[in-house]
Amino acid sequence: MFRSLFHLLVFPGFLFLVISGLTFEWLDRKFLARFQRRVGPPWYQPLADLIKLFSKEDLLPKNANDFLATLLPLISLSSVLTAGLYVPIAGYTPFSFEGDLIVIIFLMSVPTLAYYLAGIISLGIYSVLGGGRSLLQFFSYEVPLLIALSGPAILGRSWSVSTIMETQGRLGPFIIFQPLGFVLAVVGLIGKLKRDPFDIPKATSEVVGGSLTEFSGAKLGFWNLVMDIQAVVGIFLLIDLYFGWIKMSHPILAIAIFVIECLILILVLSGTSAIFARLRIDQLAGLGWRILVPLALLQIGFVILMGV
């Protein structure tokens, strides 16, 4: 009982995910700042922003549904936190079961749908536009991401992340067999996180703040937290699926390598957002269905042939 509570609330649950989410946000902003010749924020800036948002006045348009507007960020937060419970961190996973990869993928999609709904119910012109865009984008990146993520599952002959990691211990890291799949998964993750160059639903110069234009105060704070935690859970998942081969006898060494891999992936994500311009929604749909999906299918075909 006590053990489960510890898992839920401290590690790898709430506290750990929130702290790593805020750390991710700081690292991302810092890297981006350095790419742009700026100094960047101090380490406590994301936490300070969160505290500031939680202490601010909460405003919504007059006719907006306040109950749903409160519920949606909480649903998203709980679903990403739950997803975080099942992702092994440096090989440690307390709640592993067969099929947890599917649960993670499903739970990670909930915030996007909630984001769309948040745009619709908050009744601003920009938020409705942003919500529609987020749904359109969802159909563009989700399919290649799903196909790419099923690559490790096919090769590992299991839908459980920890089993896939065990297989990698025998065969070697899956990045060797599926470099293309890894790239597609990163692209899909960027789309899921609505980061530059796929920040179409919240492009400041086009739709002001996207779905969250009308949100403020604690609700916006929860939304920001959701984005950060979604990002770290996605990063952990990709590391586990493609680099999860290291079975170190010493746990500290395993943690060190896991952290380094995460840092490199964050650097890649920040670098991508620094050097690419935002795409148009029709260009993104074209990219998703004409280029990414065929490439993902190619990768899957290769994996299946390898398995035979």
Binding site: R38, S205, R278
Partner: peptide
């Protein structure tokens, strides 16, 4: 222009 199309890096570099 770069900022409007989401290329913030170019924005920062040119302004520098």
């Amino acid at each position: 222009l770069a900022k409007h199309i989401g290329l913030d890096t170019i924005f920062m570099h040119t302004w520098h």
